[in-house]
């Protein structure tokens, strides 16, 4: 039996969040997995979204400038006394 691919695609979007999180055990995720075997455009989007996630995991876009760390340490020294007041 041939499903209307457009219908399946939008219906399965609901499973996408769980699928990308690796929660593959729900009924809908199993359907999505089956669907991905046959639907090339959905597979491309899922693959490239997983690649997008890997990009950001690997490439930490924010680094702490050494000056910022140094000034934080100075603030802590100035604002936090060596012993707490009772």
């Amino acid at each position: 039996m041939h499903h209307d691919p457009g219908h399946d695609c939008s219906h399965l979007k609901e499973a996408l969040a769980d699928y990308l999180d690796g929660d593959l055990d729900t009924e809908l995720c199993r359907e999505l997995r089956e669907h991905l075997k046959d639907c090339h455009p959905c597979r491309v989007v899922v693959d490239s979204t997983q690649q997008t996630i890997r990009f950001y995991e690997k490439e930490r876009p924010v680094r702490l400038p050494p000056d910022v760390m140094r000034r934080l340490q100075e603030t802590l020294k100035a604002r936090i006394p060596p012993a707490r007041e009772p």
Binding site: P41, C42, S48, Q51, F55, E59, P61
Partner: peptide, 28 residues
């Protein structure tokens, strides 16, 4: 969100992507 009708695969080598100079800029 609507899935693009005809998305093209990303089939390059991930290592080569990471090496691209503008990679960080593109992500930011």
């Amino acid at each position: 969100w609507d899935r693009p009708a005809d998305p093209r695969p990303w089939t390059g080598d991930p290592e080569a992507w990471f090496a691209r100079e503008e990679f960080h800029q593109i992500l930011s």
